[in-house]
Amino acid sequence: MPSETPQAEVGPTGCPHRSGPHSAKGSLEKGSPEDKEAKEPLWIRPDAPSRCTWQLGRPASESPHHHTAPAKSPKILPDILKKIGDTPMVRINKIGKKFGLKCELLAKCEFFNAGGSVKDRISLRMIEDAERDGTLKPGDTIIEPTSGNTGIGLALAAAVRGYRCIIVMPEKMSSEKVDVLRALGAEIVRTPTNARFDSPESHVGVAWRLKNEIPNSHILDQYRNASNPLAHYDTTADEILQQCDGKLDMLVASVGTGGTITGIARKLKEKCPGCRIIGVDPEGSILAEPEELNQTEQTTYEVEGIGYDFIPTVLDRTVVDKWFKSNDEEAFTFARMLIAQEGLLCGGSAGSTVAVAVKAAQELQEGQRCVVILPDSVRNYMTKFLSDRWMLQKGFLKEEDLTEKKPWWWHLRVQELGLSAPLTVLPTITCGHTIEILREKGFDQAPVVDEAGVILGMVTLGNMLSSLLAGKVQPSDQVGKVIYKQFKQIRLTDTLGRLSHILEMDHFALVV
């Protein structure tokens, strides 16, 4: 994948999101292997301009796509893939009243899908469409860049269908997702969380590099694949309309690839034109409109599966009536509230959605109805927002919020430890010299600072030695090549209790 991002070429006709291997024109390309080798690009942008032909009021008969309808489940399912879809609609009884809503608040519980998330729908649909058009064949390999849930859905379907599955996901995604993927037989590649989507090191860039190296491999490409919004247009939206008897006044959905909100909203605009569509985008993402909503100094966020630093091709923002931004604290607070007060075992993005819903639905009156999409299960986040310690460490809970008995030293300040200034190293000294210094002084790690004293990161003896043994660096290389740029900081005025929580999850903390 090139470091400079080429513009994806656009073909003359058809839909841009065809499933299957992508040609340089962004659509299915038939021909000899030699032709494909000559024409197939190194990668295709996940934010390529959409060429979708959908228009409100256009006859369904003019759609270029294969459409399906929700099917009634048999008493005995032939395999677990038949437990994807037909998820329950559940009334939220307490939270709406707590925040003064007059309307009825309903939750579409997508964590009841077989793999635990709304992404099971698009995973199965992308595979079925690729099999139907002859792209996927027995023994082929599926590769997908994902925040985890699409990966789980694909790995689940691949396990049943017999495909090899490789999932490329950023490091910030939970260990629970990784464990589930491994249990399903998927191979996992992790990428830096802070890598831009168009960087060769991003999950998108690495996935395309693997595709170019592995024979008979395919990126189904949830960011561009029409099967993504079509899955929701054909099934999720129809289920909502049936469950609500066609009567709903507002739908609120958090947005990642945009397939969920695009597919549902398009069908609702056709069948229930008075329904307002509300999009939820986390602070630090750029999906919301108008652009002024996205202006923030924050560039990272903890909530998973929603928000991006690019506009995915499948996201149709014209069908969203209003956007709201959400933050991590309210997302996790509301997710825990949904679990504790409503018994809905949902993930953090569901918290984002409901946090926005109780604001947006203030305009609705008694007798009206708001539906929220709860995308995934708490299963993926047992060591994250479900953990009091994690919430404390991230600053989303305060010590006084917890009532468990603490040891005698818990409320003492870090400054009472009488710490001395640490050994520091410059980023320009060599790895070999740094190892000598650390061994001589008896230290395992040291902060790396520039000549102005600005902290650049941390270097550890173990990481340097393993990097040297693996051949990633040489003793003569500058130590700046092996620094940890993500590390926890703590102030002298913070409590030892807070430091204790940090050290339970990290090997060190830097006192500043």
Rank of each mutant, 00 (worst) to 15 (best):
E270R: 08
A159D: 02
L136G: 04
P74N: 02
L106Y: 10
E9P: 10
P2V: 09
R182D: 06
S19V: 02
K177I: 02
E104F: 02
S3T: 09
P192V: 07
H66D: 15
P70Y: 02
G153T: 06
I214L: 07
T87L: 02
L184H: 06
K172W: 02
A158S: 12
I80S: 08
E213C: 08
E128I: 14
S23I: 15
D234C: 02
G151L: 02
T5Y: 12
V180G: 02
D234L: 09
K39N: 12
K172G: 02
D86L: 02
S175M: 02
E128L: 11
T5N: 15
V90G: 02
L220D: 02
K137C: 02
V168W: 05
I44C: 07
D245Q: 09
C15Y: 10
D179L: 05
T260P: 02
K94R: 12
H66C: 12
L181H: 12
L241Y: 15
S61R: 14
S174M: 02
S27L: 11
P46S: 09
G139T: 10
E9V: 10
S227T: 12
V160R: 13
G57R: 12
K211N: 12
C15A: 02
S32D: 02
L230P: 02
F112D: 02
Q243C: 07
A155W: 05
Y233F: 10
K97T: 06
V10D: 04
K211G: 02
L248I: 10
G116C: 13
V204L: 13
R18W: 14
C103R: 02
G274R: 11
R164F: 05
Y163K: 05
T87A: 13
G14L: 11
V252L: 02
N93C: 14
V204S: 02
D198N: 10
G258A: 02
R266P: 02
A226F: 02
L136I: 09
L106H: 15
E40L: 12
A69L: 05
G96T: 02
L105S: 02
A38R: 08
T53N: 14
R161W: 07
P138L: 12
R161V: 08
V10I: 13
R190I: 06
K177Y: 02
M89P: 07
I142L: 09
L251K: 04
I143L: 07
W43D: 02
E201I: 02
T262W: 05
